[in-house]
């Protein structure tokens, strides 16, 4: 089963493993997430009530975990996105 998955990855883009080098680093520390939420909220004009903050950070952690997983997947620079604009 695991072998099948690995083959599928390699079959898709065999020569573009270098993408690993550009991957997003692993999750931030608690302090870094807290600072990130503060700065992002300010930049976006959002107010994060103290009562919500822990849950927002918990959700953001999940999103960054998914983002890291996605970013680490080797596809390479020539992979087209699904959303291709057609005039």
């Amino acid at each position: 089963m695991a072998v099948f998955v690995q083959q599928a990855v390699c079959r898709a883009r065999p020569a573009q493993q270098l993408w690993h080098a550009a991957c997003i680093r692993d999750l931030m520390t608690d302090e870094e997430f807290d600072a990130y939420v503060t700065a992002s909220a300010a930049a976006l004009g959002l107010t994060i009530d103290d009562a919500w903050r822990a849950e927002v950070i918990a959700n953001l952690r999940v999103l960054f975990a998914n983002g890291t997983l996605v970013s680490n997947f080797p596809l390479g620079e020539h992979a087209e996105a699904a959303a291709v604009f057609q005039p």
């Binding site: 990130y36 939420v37 992002s40 976006l44 953001l60 996605v70 596809l75 996105a81 699904a82």
Partner: peptide, 20 residues
């Protein structure tokens, strides 16, 4: 609120993975 703070690079890669 958390979704508003996600870097765009994650989303663009997700859309590439969608095609793959």
């Amino acid at each position: 609120l958390a979704g508003a703070m996600v870097p765009a690079v994650f989303v663009q890669k997700a859309q590439q993975i969608r095609r793959w």
